[in-house]
Design a protein around this nucleic acid. Structure first.
Length: 288
DNA sequence: ATCCAGGTCGGTC
DNA sequence: GACCGACATGGA
């Protein structure tokens, strides 16, 4: 086994659902493998039955960064058992069983979701790609090609708005810039969020212009270690209305209130199952 | 062409 | 407080 390759045992793991469901935006399925960048490491992943093969661009002495990112050792069945045992939830689980939450880096997650508002997932990917290619640190990629790390808050804080608009992010540019400056300047300590109560951590994120309840919950769930954060977007809103409110028009606040307790301590993963299974059902819309 | 996208903001009632 | 148009950009 070469130093840049590793094999992980991964039961109950659906790599395609996990990397393709829209919780992270830098994964691309090409040449039969998932290729992406985690931190400063370019890596390709391939699932074979109950194992995941990893090939990094650089030799590794320790793969914990990847195991942690992929949350390989999480006991999925134990978490699924905490979901409500109703028909819509169980159907959603059946449709993308093996979908996991990733453990993402908080700044990349926050920045990505600031860029996500009223954008299709395909387009979020494109914006993030351009941002990385223009402003991220070059790293070693596939076959010694150049890849790019996600730009740090410090790097973005040093830019101006028009440089960000060149990445085609439109009105989100000032939001991203202000967030970067807040993080780089130490006013917002992203790493410390996980030590706070959920409501307090959310309140800190909501201080940022361009970050509302949905984006805040995405960051708390995908990068902040809050398994019960439950982002309510248009898709989840649809799913909740269909399955739990007889297709009635329900105020968003009411949906948030409902979802904050109904889905239990791992509501965030339940949300991800509802989200992804509904999107899978649309079929065509998932083409990227 | 027209609509709408993993929302949020600032201004109205 | 709840409702509503604006916001950049580009896929479908």
């Amino acid at each position: 086994m070469k130093l840049n390759e590793a094999v992980f045992r991964a039961r109950d793991y659906d790599l395609a659902a996990t990397l393709g469901c829209g919780q992270a935006f830098r994964w691309e399925f090409r040449d039969n493998r998932w290729q992406g960048v985690v931190g400063e490491n370019w890596v390709a992943l391939e699932q074979r039955g109950h194992t995941i093969l990893a090939r990094a661009a650089k030799p590794q002495t320790d793969w914990r960064w990847l195991e942690n990112y992929l949350q390989i050792h999480v006991d999925l069945p134990a978490i699924l058992a905490t979901f409500p045992q109703d028909a819509p939830m169980q159907e959603a689980v059946a449709r993308c069983l093996g979908l996991r939450l990733l453990q993402q880096e908080p700044w990349e997650c926050l920045a990505s979701f600031i860029l996500s508002s009223t954008k299709q997932i395909v387009q979020i990917r494109q914006i993030v790609d351009r941002l990385c290619a223009r402003q991220g640190r070059p790293i070693v990629g596939l076959d010694h090609e150049t890849a790019f790390a996600f730009p740090t808050a410090e790097q973005i804080a040093a830019l101006n708005e028009s440089q960000l608009r060149e990445c085609r992010m439109g009105f989100r540019a000032p939001y991203l810039l202000a967030a970067a400056r807040s993080v780089a300047g130490g006013e917002l300590a992203l790493g410390g969020l996980r030590r706070l109560e959920l409501l307090e951590a959310r309140a800190r994120l909501l201080q940022l212009t361009g970050v509302g309840p949905k984006i805040a919950d995405c960051v708390l769930l995908f990068a902040g270690g809050f398994p019960n954060a439950f982002p309510v977007d248009v898709w989840v809103m649809r799913a909740l209305r269909q399955s739990y409110f007889r297709n009635r028009r329900v105020p968003l606040a009411r949906l948030r209130e409902f979802s904050s307790t109904y889905f239990g301590p791992h509501g965030g993963l339940a949300q991800q199952y509802l989200f992804h299974s509904l999107r899978l059902g649309e079929g065509k819309k998932l083409s990227h």
